[in-house]
Amino acid sequence: MQDTIIQLEGIGKSFKVAKRSAGLVQAAKALLVRDYNVVEALKDISFSIGKGEIVGYIGPNGAGKSTTIKVMSGILVPDEGSCQIMGYTPWTDRVTYVKNIGVVFGQRSQLWWDVPVIDSYELLKDIYKIPRQMYEDNLRMLSETLDLAEFIRTPVRQLSLGQRMRCEIAASLLHSPSLLFLDEPTIGLDAVSKLAVRQFIKTINKEQGVTVILTTHDMADIEALADRILMIGKGTLLYDGSLEQLRGRFGVQEKESLDEMIVQLYKEHQI
């Protein structure tokens, strides 16, 4: 058994969502009193992840994927349950904890839009207080494996989406985190960039032993990368195991697409 790096126990989180209603009277009332719906985003989520794993975290939109990622990255404080990651509780030791993780939000950029990529990196170096030697080594390694050299001095706004995503991933690895969260890293990328990103994730996982947790809607990502799948729906954990096991359970042929299998699985759980 590998060392566990992440241990989640009974994590639960609910949100109050203000009811929005049409009509002038209702709207006027809403100014004074708001009606709330309580939405349970996460219900009793428990799992543990070992060092060096690549875990695919899947589920339909609104199932609680990003809430879980937010809890694990220390952004959000859950209502109940405990979470130990590398000996830290993410939401209490935020500043010391986040030095050890890298986060990529696929839909948002952490790079400064108008300046060359390298300037953003220099700033990150100071934010994370990365020692010069380590920064240079990492930068060299990253720009070699991700082919950044040709556009590292170009302002971000002039980069293509694929180039930008490669820069984003590199940015979140400059401080040598041992845990990497990737939230939809391949969204909107063309085939070439997708393959490059996947290849890179594999490489850093193998060579640096970085544990990777990725959410995605692209089942091909999962197939190419993940040793293990966590599936979440309506805030509860529905499946935890390998892709092969899942295939076996459905008795599907290789031919049948993964997407269809997942749809079937969603249907089965009525989500």
Binding site: K70, S73, G74, I75, R94, V95, T96, V98, K99, I101, V103, F105, R108, Q110, I127, Y128, K129
Partner: peptide
């Protein structure tokens, strides 16, 4: 609104 505050929270600074 752009959701960028999350980004600040995953960085080890105040």
């Amino acid at each position: 609104r752009r959701g960028e505050f999350d980004r600040l929270l995953v960085r080890p600074r105040s």
